[in-house]
Design a protein around this nucleic acid. Structure first.
Length: 480
RNA sequence: UCCUCCUUAGCUCAGUUGGUUAGAGCAUCUGACUGUUAAUCAGAGGGUCGCCCGUUCAAGUCGGGCAGGGGGAGCCA
């Protein structure tokens, strides 16, 4: 059998030696015409393969280049050198795939993340991206495990949606009509979507929430975890045009239940990564340390990556209302000394990222849950509070990346909901199916959306969201 | 989309007040060495200085436009 191999992770974690093994992987470096650092992606650590001098012909040795794929059979022995416990003394080396050293772009040295982004198809083979995507996997798995263990149903909401009333952002159009101007038109010159594949105008989903609410009205506890698309021209380190979102929706939960669920969830998945990817997180911590050294003293982070993650897991998130946050900001020295670009002067406007950062990074120094925002800066489906001015919304702000969760208790009262829709000029006929849940057995319920890539950013410490998704989609970029 | 900075060898970067033939480290190739840890040592090859236009006797260097990238802002997750 060809694939009778042992993964390098298993081989290295096994203390045993003096047994035969076959490994396959990609050459990271070939030192001294004798020592191959081999990696198969199962761990960031390389296996040292020793090709004893004189045992292999010159032709084979020449083909062991950085990036080449090889199969090695030999004996696992206690290492004669420092730096590793065991090594593989090669008996046979087979070149599975050559790699032209003059053309292979990865070198055994540090590359810039910007350069690696241009070769996203090869960047998996670096230590940094190996670690990032193993952590990404663990987080994805932990998410399913968390909800499954709690009895939630994993709901697949549609990728193609017809509703354009959600207001979550600019949408990508989905059409099978010709784009050369020959598509059927209405009398007023607009495109006649009755002729289109679905017989109506459709888009890529911007959120699975509304559909999630429908299922929560039957299963009580559901979550979605899937791709989401926003056609906004956002060019930042924390926005993507295609990203993955987790959206739990829970019947009978109020705002406080919602906060409790979100906080427990975030702590659980972070702890899972800490427990299952200690080496990857330590590697990422080290590269962050290097990065921090380049910064001026007072911009440096007070905690290392692992400390930061453990701090989040072991401390309660700070919970306060929008109104309380405005007070803190207004009374802050930062505001009084006019150090904010946008000074806080009154109640009712949305917070800018500098304000959120101040609250999270300077004032509380931990994740913050802000609640009960003014109704005018939030969505139509959020539940109206008794004061008539605020809604039962919550945003979770994380150090370094800002808003990681946005959620709310939903408006379950038909009259209040339709009133809000009218105010915000949202046509009811488009959302008849959504309003049916309020017509037939409506109940209090709540949910939130968590941006998966922002979570991965937080856990890996990566500064740019484009480096935590395998093939990022953002304005002017859809290669690979 | 706005503000700001950047673009010089495969990669990471130097390049002085505009002035001969544009440099270094790493990588690559050739050779030496051989228990190395991003091996080491010696030598060699490698450049339309992002693209276009302008100023000037002369532009990598100054000015304008465009493209791409970084950081920040807005929109948000």
């Amino acid at each position: 059998m060809f694939n009778k191999r042992v993964r390098i992770k298993e081989l290295l974690s096994n203390e045993a030696s003096n047994y035969d093994a076959t490994v396959m992987g990609w050459v990271r470096t070939f030192r001294n015409n004798q020592f191959i650092a081999l990696n198969d992606g199962s761990t960031n650590n390389n296996l040292q393969v020793v090709a004893t001098l004189g045992n292999f012909d010159e032709k084979t040795l020449k083909r062991i280049t950085t990036g080449a794929c090889i199969k090695v059979t030999g004996e696992v022995i206690p290492s004669l050198g420092k730096g590793q416990k065991v090594e593989l003394k090669a008996v046979s080396i087979e070149i599975l795939g050559d790699s032209d050293a003059e053309k292979f772009p990865l070198q055994p040295k540090r590359h810039s993340l910007e350069f690696l982004r241009e070769i996203a198809h090869l960047r998996f083979r670096t230590n940094t991206f190996g670690a990032v995507f193993r952590v990404r996997h663990s987080l994805a798995f932990a998410i399913h495990k968390f909800f499954n263990d709690k009895g939630f149903i994993y709901l697949h909401t549609p990728i193609i949606t017809a509703s354009d009333a959600e207001g979550a952002g600019e949408m990508f159009k989905v059409t099978a009509l010709p784009l050369d101007g020959t598509a059927a038109k209405n009398e007023d010159g607009s495109i006649n979507y009755k002729e289109d594949f679905f017989g109506r105008s459709t888009n890529l989903t911007v959120s699975g929430q509304l559909e999630g609410e429908l299922a929560a009205m039957a299963f009580s506890d559901i979550y979605t975890f899937g791709p989401t698309f926003r056609a906004e021209n956002s060019n930042t380190t924390r926005h993507l045009a295609e990203f993955w979102m987790i959206e739990p929706e829970v019947a009978f939960n109020d705002l406080e239940d919602n906060m409790n669920l979100a906080e427990e969830f975030i702590k659980y998945v972070i702890q899972y990564a800490i427990d299952n990817n200690p080496e990857d997180i330590e590697f990422l911590a080290q590269r962050l340390d290097e990065e921090e050294k380049q910064k001026p003293q007072n911009d440096r982070s007070e905690m290392r990556l692992l400390e930061k993650l453990e701090f989040v897991v072991n401390n309660d998130f700070e919970r306060l209302t929008y109104t309380e946050a405005i007070e803190i900001l207004k009374e802050s020295n930062h505001n009084k000394k006019k150090k904010f670009q946008y000074l806080i002067d009154g109640w009712g406007t949305d917070l800018h990222s500098e304000h959120e950062r101040y609250l999270v990074e300077k004032h509380f120094k931990k994740p913050v849950i802000l609640t009960n925002y003014p109704k005018d800066i939030k969505s139509f489906y959020m539940r109206m509070n008794d004061d008539g001015k605020t809604v039962a919304a919550m945003d979770i702000l994380a150090p370094g990346i800002g808003e990681i969760v946005g959620g709310s208790q939903r408006e379950e009262r038909m009259d209040k909901l339709t009133e809000r829709m009218a105010e915000m000029k949202i046509p009811q006929e488009e959302l008849g199916w959504y309003l049916d849940t309020r017509r037939f057995g409506s109940c209090p319920h709540a949910g939130f959306g968590l941006g998966f890539e922002r979570l991965v950013q937080f856990v890996t410490g990566m500064g740019n969201i484009r480096d935590v998704i395998p093939f990022p989609r953002y304005p002017k970029s859809a290669e690979f």
